[in-house]
Computed example of a mutant assay.
Amino acid sequence: MIQNEKKYEYWLASIQNLSDNKKHKLREHMNSAKRAYYIEETELNTLNFLSEKEKNVIKQAQKELNPDYVQEELEKKGVSVVLRFEEKYPRQLQSIPDRPYAIFYKGSLPTTEKYSVGIVGARQCTPYGEKYAFEFAQQLAQHRVQIISGLAKGIDGISQRGALMGGGQTFAVLGNGVDICYPRENIGLYHDIIEQGGGILSEFPLGAPPLGFQFPKRNRIISGLSNVLLVIEAREKSGSLITADMALEQGRDVYALPGPINSALSSGCNRLIWQGAGILLSPEQLLEELGIINVAESVEFKEKEQEKKKVLETKENLVYSSVGLYPKSANQIMEETGLQVSIVFQILSALQIQGLIREISKNYYIKV
């Protein structure tokens, strides 16, 4: 594709209120996005595959959406675009119905050379859900598994933090433009994902706000990019179950974390298991079931985890003892414990997930 014609491709990709399939059909009919941009109204009106409303959307985009401006904004904000007919377009998405016409992204895209696991769950999750979202993501990431999620508050954000703590890569699929971090409280995670080689992805153009109806739509991308989907906590009617349904329609396997029968946040997961979803018993069981490790490695994995747990418990106690009822900085905790920066922050995250400490301002902690 000629470089100076890319701006027209970005223009077409950035049109809202025009479906992915209609964008693709328009480009195919006109042989290029540039010709689509310069199409005369008389010719546009002859295109029977477009409704009157869609024709008006294109006319408005011709007047109000400048291709030069679109390209400049993408470059200024460090955002890349891959189109559904390009070689770099994620292969996992090629087979899903209504695949996005374009993916806007910061950082990198998931690769098919590594296994990908999607993790979704409740925003208002329990400490039980937080603990296992973090553990599964962390230990999967330690085995080079890519974690796909939605950067949302709760299970999504916690699993993505776990993936980073496991030294792996994670990819966040947003229900808004990639230049907007939503929720804002995950801005640190947003940047950390990119810095550690992962990416922030969206089918929505720059500046697109986080509107409610866009989130179920983005869920098909989370499941589509994943080889399997894990549901950690979900109510009977929730976005996580919508994602699970989409995963099944796309031919992906679904696993769910079992929970107490009297817990509303486990009711959706328990029902999924009753309907035939895989049951999550431990990270090593999942790794073995997915063929990522074999039985011998599973035994070794368990032994290493037990040893690590003993060491971590000792270090956890050291960090926990250092945190008091008055705010203390992470630097003070490092000085008092003599532990490395990465270990201290890993333990501080774990203690927060367990509800034992709280971060009251940036890098300042107190006991709960």
Score class of each variant (00 low, 15 high):
Glu336Thr: 09
Arg252Tyr: 01
Gly207Tyr: 07
Phe49His: 14
Ser159Pro: 05
Phe134Leu: 13
Lys106Tyr: 07
Leu312Ser: 12
Tyr326Phe: 09
Ala208Asp: 02
Gly239Ile: 07
Lys328Cys: 09
Gly338Thr: 04
Glu64Leu: 09
Val299Phe: 12
Gly188Lys: 13
Tyr115Pro: 02
Ile147Val: 15
Met30Gln: 11
Ile194Asp: 14
Lys25Trp: 01
Glu73Met: 10
Tyr132Phe: 11
Tyr365Glu: 07
Gln275Pro: 06
Gly278Lys: 02
Lys59Met: 06
Ile279Asn: 04
Ala13Leu: 03
Ser14His: 00
Gly150Ile: 08
Glu316Pro: 00
Gln142Pro: 13
Leu257Met: 14
Ser202Phe: 08
Glu113Arg: 01
Ser342Ala: 15
Trp274Ala: 15
Ala122Asn: 08
Val323Arg: 01
Lys131Met: 06
Glu336His: 00
Ser202Gly: 11
Gln346Phe: 04
Phe136Trp: 06
Gly166Lys: 05
Lys22Phe: 08
Ala244Leu: 10
Ala264Lys: 06
Lys76Phe: 13
Gln160Phe: 02
Asp245Gly: 15
Arg218Ile: 00
Ile147Pro: 05
Glu236Ile: 15
Glu249Thr: 13
Val57Asn: 11
Gln250Glu: 12
Arg271Pro: 00
Tyr105Lys: 05
Ser223Met: 01
Glu335Gln: 11
Leu290Cys: 10
Arg99Met: 09
Lys309Glu: 14
Asn331Gln: 05
Glu236Cys: 05
Leu241Trp: 02
Ile103Lys: 00
Glu313Tyr: 03
Ala137Met: 09
Arg161Gln: 14
Ile180Arg: 02
Tyr89Ala: 12
Phe85Glu: 09
Lys6Pro: 12
Glu203Tyr: 01
Leu47Lys: 03
Asp245Thr: 04
Gly338Glu: 13
Leu290Pro: 00
Asn4Ala: 08
Met246Val: 01
Gly198Glu: 02
Glu336Phe: 02
Ile200Asp: 15
Ser267Asn: 11
Ser240Asn: 08
Ser349Ile: 06
Arg144Pro: 03
Phe204Pro: 06
Asp68Ser: 07
Glu203Lys: 11
Ser266Tyr: 07
Gln346Asp: 12
Glu87Gln: 14
Gln138Lys: 09
Leu230Tyr: 02
Ala163Trp: 03
Leu281Ile: 01
Lys304Gln: 15
Glu313Met: 07
Gly118Trp: 02
Gln250Lys: 04
Leu189Asn: 10
Ile194Trp: 10
Ser240Asp: 12
Ala277Glu: 02
Gly268Val: 11
Lys25Asp: 13
Ala256Met: 07
Ser298Ile: 05
Asn317Gly: 12
Glu75Phe: 03
Asn262Val: 04
Leu44Ser: 15
Tyr101Gly: 06
Asn176Glu: 08
Gly338Phe: 05
Phe85Thr: 09
Arg91Asp: 04
Lys63Pro: 05
Arg161Phe: 03
Gln138His: 04
Arg123Asp: 12
Glu313Gly: 08
His191Trp: 07
Gly197Val: 05
Lys308Met: 11
Val117Leu: 00
Asn262Asp: 12
Leu248Ala: 11
Val178Glu: 11
Gln332Arg: 15
Lys77Asp: 13
Val178Pro: 02
Glu72Ser: 12
Lys22Ile: 00
Glu185Trp: 07
Glu130Ala: 02
Ser226Pro: 10
Glu303Ser: 14
